[in-house]
Amino acid sequence: MERKTVIEVNHVDAGYDHPVLRDVDFKVFQGEVFVVLGGSGCGKSTMLKHMIGLNPPLAGTVRLIGDNIWSGDPAERTRALRHFGVSYQSGALFGSMTLLENVLLPLECFTSLPPSARRLLALMRLEQVGLREYAGFYPADISGGMKKRAAIARALALEPEILFLDEPSAGLDPVTSAGLDRLLLELRDRHGMTMVMVTHELPSIFAVADRCVMLDRAAQGMIAQGKPAELRDYPPNDTVRRFFNRQAEGDKS
């Protein structure tokens, strides 16, 4: 059975003023965890910003469930924006709001549910990430791992079909990181959610990724695409081999 395509990145040149990546082209299918990986400074986060509508690509298009996020038509862009939630690297929680208020914010802005329903729904989202008991805490009062989970709860508030995650495991201890990986897999299995994760944390990649694409600064584009285990076992080039074997430049294999 052919799987439904939810994200189409078509021949994108990524960058701000001049391209750092050229002709990036891939598809993400429904219900899969797709990882964009690569070394530091290779343009992963820039690529993510093109995909979530923050910065326009220099060339090419990004379609989310058929809607072009960089369309000139505001209605199409708005539709595209509703398809996804984003969990940012730092959490990007609003510091003046409690966790509950952070999760409530999109529900208050974009649903007509009664206040008690919104509140219960927000608490359920926090329960999903194991933070219901911290609903009244402010972001400054919780740990880095909890902030990331709270950010995921907020991203899930409007039940998006796609969840983008920017470096979800960065800066977390291995146990917290593994817990976060499990949470992501639960969300995928329970809700059939599609996830795009930008990371270079190998344990997380092997734990959650169905497929991945590898970007490279020197090659100015994609250098590999496939299942993480396949890329590790049969690396198509030296850069991929070094990445999966954690080898520094110049190290002998």
């Binding site: 608490l123 329960e127 911290y134 402010y138 329970r190």
Partner: peptide
């Protein structure tokens, strides 16, 4: 059944504001 397993109603018995660490 799935919903009640994941979100037991007893856990949401009180949804007042007094949940804060402050």
């Amino acid at each position: 059944d799935t919903v009640f397993r994941v979100f037991p109603a007893e856990k949401f018995a009180k949804i007042e504001t007094g949940l804060s660490g402050r």
